[in-house]
Design a protein around this nucleic acid. Sequence first.
DNA 1: GAGATATAATTAGGCACCTAACTATATAAG
DNA 2: CTTATATAGTTAGGTGCCTAATTATATCTC
Lengths: 188, 188
Amino acid sequence: MDNNNKIINDIDAIPSLVQSKRQIDRYNLDIDAQAILVASRLMAAGAKLGHASEIHFSRFGLSTGRYRLLADLEDNEGEELPSQLAEHLGVTRATVTGLIDILERDGLVSRRTSSDDGRQRTVILTEKGAKKLREMAPEHFARLEAMVGLLNIDERSVFLDLLDRVTQGISALTGELGSKPKGNISNE
Amino acid sequence: MDNNNKIINDIDAIPSLVQSKRQIDRYNLDIDAQAILVASRLMAAGAKLGHASEIHFSRFGLSTGRYRLLADLEDNEGEELPSQLAEHLGVTRATVTGLIDILERDGLVSRRTSSDDGRQRTVILTEKGAKKLREMAPEHFARLEAMVGLLNIDERSVFLDLLDRVTQGISALTGELGSKPKGNISNE
DNA sequence: GAGATATAATTAGGCACCTAACTATATAAG
DNA sequence: CTTATATAGTTAGGTGCCTAATTATATCTC
């Protein structure tokens, strides 16, 4: 027998409203249980999506980060500095170095030292890298489209709007307590 | 000077519609650009939230996973088997072992070998663990509530509904190509 | 032009989570 | 009762991402 604990991730413990309510009641907090439910569900969805994304890209021998790096290179005429890549992807330079290491090992990108600034190392999308993107595009985009297939056009617009505002709200987790995120408040 | 690349994560490269359109056009695919935008934004939001969550919990000396484990224990009279925890949290038993190791080291939970089945090890929420949850609850829930503060009550309901359907759609990334996720389709 | 300082990329080491292999106990079959 | 098999938990090793420290180059100031 190989792996006996494979089903676990499919059960997907999604948080319920009862659960949220119980947690709040336990400490007599003046908090809206539904708000907590939304937050919990979004966290669960984010984790699930992240995991699914890794599985998706691993089919093409890539990780989420390495695919995003390749796609960004393609969007910039196949040539960028590591620091630009880090900014575009929203990760640190250290992470970019690691991503490039593996992509270079696999021949999908190459590094070249810049002529005008000896500190810079230009990252170049190789023909093999471009081919990889070309080959995976149909399936990749079809799957992404299928993912939101249960929403119709109008619902997608609404979802985008709401998601955008919740995304702004994420700073409430990391920022000053009580400081409101910038943006128009449609509440209260 | 300590860290010169700290600002990077605040810029937050959010994907744009133009970007999605360009990628699709490049390969002449018959794909709805807005669908791709929704998928990309959700991925970005998920990653951002995951990161913010770790920062949030690290203020209390916990990680996201370790907090969820403690909260689940509290929800089950402070006593559970590792396998139950794994199922509730949606992670593997190996991961649970690691979470417990650190929580036990910090005195927030303890392990006890079961009397009726020698293979089982009951995990118990200690008084210190319960106190930790009690102390962090007000700030924790206040921050979660603030996160969705830019949505009013009605919008939260709508968001929950849409998010739920998109979450179902995530299986399109990992499952058979062309297989539709179960659930009522409000589209087409 | 020498020394301080800024910047680009990398290396070193850490955490969360994973899969696969292993250990120990329990149970079923001959 | 012994051998095979299932199950609970752990260990070993890998990936993705992080922060902090390091190396190498460029620039600014005297």
